[in-house]
């Protein structure tokens, strides 16, 4: 069974049809990419999965559970975490605090425990801090744990977003254009981080339009164009798929998408 099932999803904003009968099955423990030209509706798919907007038709299920009517913070608690195309860290908080925000729902002490700093409270906070530091070490930012997040470089902010998303203990991680605006060496580093995350057993579902990055990284790829899925399969198959080549390069072009 796939981890995330998107079945027959349609979405229109007023008269503008953004998605039409989109079907995607995202497996667990693998890297799955949704690619497509700008404006194809990729981010809309993420916004639908995380519950920020509601589909006009169709259904989304996570681990077999229908997500219709589930509010975004509950969807996160079920095990879906995401990063954003235009990075959305908490700039005035330290790296450690940023990551600990992700553990919010896992810290379930009550108001009195909080006020009196009971042993249970201290223990929960300590464990949470340790896990946050561990996650920061996964992305090699633990040495900056006490720096404020706005001091980080662009690439580091992306990595902080990864760690923060992982702090919610998700089963599936949604990455929205993780390498946008990065230079080739930063991209290589990030690609390695994403592979590491998959190898630790997480499912990764990413959006990208950097074809080379996707083809080298992903286990499976779906292509979205004008709100429809036009192809789906392993990278090698997608690379030579005539509809994909047409979507990216235009009709009548013999060139292969590299």
């Amino acid at each position: 069974m796939s981890l995330l099932s998107i079945r027959g999803i349609g979405k229109h904003f007023g008269g503008l049809q953004v998605l039409e009968d989109v079907n995607i099955e995202v497996p667990g423990g693998a890297i799955f990419a949704l690619i497509g030209p700008n404006g194809a509706g990729k981010t809309t798919v993420f916004n639908l999965v995380t519950g920020l907007i509601k589909p006009s038709s169709g259904s989304i299920a996570f681990e077999g559970r229908d997500l219709a009517g589930v509010p975004p913070h509950q969807i996160t608690r079920l095990g879906i975490a995401r990063t954003f195309q235009n990075i959305r860290i908490f700039p005035d908080m330290t790296l450690l605090e940023n990551v600990m925000v992700g553990r919010h729902h896992l810290l379930n002490y009550g108001g009195l425990a909080l006020l009196f700093a009971t042993p249970a409270f201290r223990e929960a906070e300590r464990r949470s801090r340790e896990r946050a530091l561990e996650l920061l070490s996964w992305v090699k930012l633990d040495h900056k744990a006490d720096a404020t997040a706005d001091n980080l470089s662009y690439g580091e902010q992306r990595k902080l977003e990864f760690a923060r998303a992982l702090a919610t203990e998700p089963k599936l991680l949604l990455l929205d254009e993780p390498v946008a605006g990065m230079n080739p060496s930063e991209k290589a580093v990030l690609m390695e981080e994403i592979r590491n995350i998959r190898d630790r057993g997480y499912g990764v579902f990413l959006i990208e339009h950097d074809m080379r990055f996707v083809m080298n990284l992903c286990d499976r790829v779906a292509v979205l164009n004008f709100g429809r899925i036009i192809a789906e399969g392993p990278p090698d198959e997608i690379r030579t798929h005539p509809d994909v080549i047409e979507a990216y390069l235009g009709r009548g072009d013999e060139a292969e998408v590299s």
Partner: peptide, 25 residues
Amino acid sequence: RSRLGRAFEAIREDEVAARLMGINV
């Protein structure tokens, strides 16, 4: 110094991101 204070600050800095960190805004 608790999850409550961190949630407040997260909401102040970015409401959407806070929501998607599992916080009931």
